[in-house]
């Protein structure tokens, strides 16, 4: 496979409020390749969004990227470690929007109601391209057309509150693509939308990805979306990536008990009528009281006392790209 465009290694993003410390992202690693989609999946609060925001260094205070590296191959071929950059420096701002576009979760409140959508898209263009006002406007209209907004010449002067949720999310995508980034991070892009609009938005992301050879990070809690969109999957639980691999292997031969449980909890039209939907027992532990050892052990059906609650399981490589963090696999199995 080609060189990765973005390489995340052992990323650690911690929140340190007065009450203690929350390890929102605790040693995540993954690679992104041009033209391919990485799905990051997990329950709410598992650190998906914080991982994505860490890449742009826009984690809200008191959160902070405290360790690891995020190596970006810039358009001129230079390798830059984003973790080492000044959070508000010129290079970081150049990367935001310029190299990495970000589509947020809530299209309803992610656009300012005080400026037209054209103003906001043109702002993004001006920040990264040397163009005249007229050129920026033409480009904005072109972008709105690209994301499938009808009558873009008029819509460019609309305000966000004059658009439906689906159209707003299209504007958000146009905004993310304004400066022609090579990476697109979509943070639950369809969560706030109804099902038919969801399908349209996903289709749009896929179409643009093909046209522009974008590397896409798709963050979702929806295994169905992953199956439809992703090439590779990373399953996150409490800030750690517990299993990662190609989408086929994860769906057909899930290894980690958490991944297996997630897949069992997808509703299916083929299921026995009136049968109960499988759920994952227990609930996510309080962030200040993480269980020792493997953090999934209190909810795990394969819990091995004296093993899983002692030390965190190391990563075990199962095949070329398939990795799992569980004591059921690898050398330590016998004991």
């Amino acid at each position: 496979m080609a060189e990765p465009i973005l390489s995340v290694r052992n990323l650690q993003t911690y929140f340190r409020p007065d009450e203690g410390i929350v390890r929102a992202v605790d040693g995540a690693s993954f690679d992104l390749y041009p033209g391919r989609t990485l799905g990051i999946v997990g329950e709410s609060g598992c650190g998906k969004s914080v991982t994505a925001r860490s890449i742009l260094r826009i984690v809200d205070r008191p959160g902070k990227v405290e360790g690891g590296e995020i190596v970006l191959r810039r358009h001129d071929g230079r390798l830059v470690d984003i973790v080492g950059l000044d959070e508000s420096g010129a290079e970081m701002r150049d990367i935001r929007g310029g190299e990495i576009g970000y589509v947020f979760q809530e299209p309803m409140s992610s656009l300012s109601a005080f400026y037209t959508i054209g103003n906001q898209v043109m702002e993004a263009i001006h920040l990264h391209k040397r163009v005249t006002e007229k050129e920026a406007r033409d480009r904005a209209i072109e972008l709105l057309h690209l994301v499938g907004i009808p009558r873009p010449e008029q819509r460019v002067d609309s305000y966000s509150f004059e658009l439906s949720g689906g159209l707003r999310q299209r504007v958000m995508i146009a905004l993310a693509l304004a400066a022609e980034p090579r990476i697109l991070i979509a943070d639950e892009p369809t969560t706030a939308l109804d099902v038919t609009t969801q399908a349209q938005i996903l289709e749009l992301i896929r179409k643009i990805q093909e046209e522009r050879k974008l590397a896409v990070v798709l963050i979702t809690h929806d295994m169905g979306v992953i199956a439809e969109m992703a090439d590779a999957v990373s399953v996150m639980y409490l800030g750690k990536i517990v299993e990662s691999g190609p989408v086929d292997e994860i769906f057909h031969a899930p290894k980690h008990p958490y991944t297996q449980a997630l897949l069992r909890s997808i509703p299916s039209v083929l299921a026995e009528p009136r049968s109960r939907l499988a759920t994952i027992s227990g609930s996510i532990p309080h962030p200040y009281a993480r269980p020792p050892g493997c953090t999934f052990n209190p909810r795990c059906g394969n819990f091995m006392p004296g093993k899983c609650d002692q030390a965190p399981p190391p990563a075990t490589t199962l095949s070329a790209d398939h990795e799992v963090r569980c004591f059921l696999y690898g050398e330590g199995v016998a004991t």
Partner: peptide, 27 residues
């Protein structure tokens, strides 16, 4: 400052003080 549109403005590479003056202060 906690609204999502602030993060959106930041994510497109706008300098911090311009983010604050143009969007949340305006609101």
């Amino acid at each position: 400052l906690r609204r999502p549109y602030v993060a959106t403005a930041r994510a497109r590479g706008l300098a911090e003080w311009r983010v604050i003056v143009k969007y949340p202060v305006r609101a």
